[in-house]
């Protein structure tokens, strides 16, 4: 009798583990596709682009983020290669001059202030530190959006935590003794 009670309990544990590890991530995230499957690798290899050729800074250090269509159309006014994705991009976006709605993996809440220039130029961090192998990937990963919070499941790379959470920022800042005040990173 007692033994059977434990079985019931363990069954409960197993069901919860299964639901929590396998079922929950599927339920909590909805998968959205990027408008175009962009290959960073092709651009890095064939066009010889570096990250900050497209993801630029202006004179006062503002980061452009995902480049606007204008930047892409500079080269892709007509087809340059032979991939289906490029054809789709030119036909659906460049020719009708429609801005693609890129889903940004690293999008942060409104109250977060993040300055790329201070991290890259002052802190000498490599892009890979937070963005992992994003810059050398051949396909864009599906954008898994958290149904409750609305943010991406992860920001791709080999960052210390799966999503770019405040803990991940604080870990690094604490290690480099650069943790001053809340308003350093909040606005």
């Amino acid at each position: 009798m007692k033994f059977r009670g434990i079985i019931v309990f363990v069954a409960g544990v197993l069901v919860a583990l299964g639901a929590g590890w396998a079922g929950f991530p599927r339920v909590i995230h909805q998968t959205r596709r990027q408008p175009v499957d962009f290959s960073h690798q092709i651009h890095a290899d064939k066009a010889g682009s570096k990250c900050d050729d497209c993801h630029t800074f202006d004179a006062v250090g503002r980061f452009s983020g995902v480049p606007e269509l204008e930047k892409c159309s500079g080269c892709h006014a007509a087809l340059m290669g032979s991939t289906a994705e490029e054809k789709k991009f030119v036909d659906q976006y460049v020719t009708p001059n429609r801005e693609p709605e890129w889903l940004v993996y690293a999008r942060q809440p409104e109250n977060v202030y993040f300055s790329h220039i201070t991290h890259v130029k002052r802190g000498n961090l490599k892009c890979e530190k937070c963005h992992g192998d994003h810059g050398t990937s051949n396909h864009l990963r599906p954008y898994q959006e958290d149904r409750i919070s609305g943010y991406s499941r992860d920001i791709w790379g080999t960052a210390t935590r799966p999503a770019m959470t405040m803990d991940a920022c604080v870990d690094c800042h604490r290690q480099s003794h650069l943790e001053h005040s809340c308003l350093d990173c909040h606005k």
């Binding site: 250090g61 300055s115 201070t118 130029k121 606005k187």
Partner: peptide, 17 residues
């Protein structure tokens, strides 16, 4: 503080501390 952030980013862009 928004202006301080902007000033800090500009400082970094210009290579100053």
């Amino acid at each position: 503080h928004g202006r301080w952030h902007a000033a800090k980013a500009k400082t970094a862009a210009e290579g100053n501390t």
